[in-house]
């Protein structure tokens, strides 16, 4: 059982991420799905074209999440102080689409913001989001000198 990594054929994708009606429809589905996830936790979702804002439950519990359609298969997710990631989604369910799991993980309080320190000084920030299909950001075990802030779960409201 051996594993090897090889260069694939040169990409011939020249679509430049154009958003055709198929991707538009998929984006609408994802917005509906994430809005339902927000509402299920007592929050709300507002869509304005390419932008979806997910508002945590009343009382300031949790973090507001902003999702912006960037292009076909890609969206930008922002939350808290440091989370600003490009996530991907596919046209069909069942394929690799971490966008929804990542946003749900943030709602569930799985996301961590990490401040790296050195000699007592703050040197930078990063984030770590474990989710069903893997993780995003810097695995925390590789950051021995750090301050970690876990984003609160929307369910704690």
């Amino acid at each position: 059982m051996r594993l090897s990594f090889v260069p694939g054929a040169l990409s011939e994708d020249d679509s430049d991420g154009a958003i055709n009606p198929q991707w538009e429809a998929r984006w609408a589905e994802i917005c509906d799905r994430l809005t339902a996830e927000a509402e299920g936790r007592g929050g709300r979702g507002y869509r304005d074209g390419d932008n979806l804002t997910l508002v945590p439950p009343h009382g300031g519990q949790g973090e507001r999440i902003r999702v912006q359609l960037v292009e076909a298969e890609s969206a930008r997710v922002r939350a808290g102080w440091t989370i600003d990631v490009f996530e991907h989604f596919s046209l069909v369910d069942g394929s690799y689409s971490p966008l929804v799991p990542v946003v749900v993980a943030i709602m569930d309080g799985a996301a961590q913001e990490i401040a790296e320190t050195s000699g007592g000084r703050w040197v930078g920030v990063c984030h770590y989001i474990p989710h069903a299909a893997g993780s995003v950001g810097l695995p925390p075990e590789l950051s021995p000198d750090r301050l970690v802030r876990s984003l609160p779960s929307w369910r704690s409201a």
Binding site: R2, L3, S4, F5, V6, P7, G8, A9, S11
Partner: peptide, 8 residues
């Protein structure tokens, strides 16, 4: 049994 991953 061997696995291969292509990178593009």
């Amino acid at each position: 049994g061997n696995a291969h991953c292509s990178v593009t």
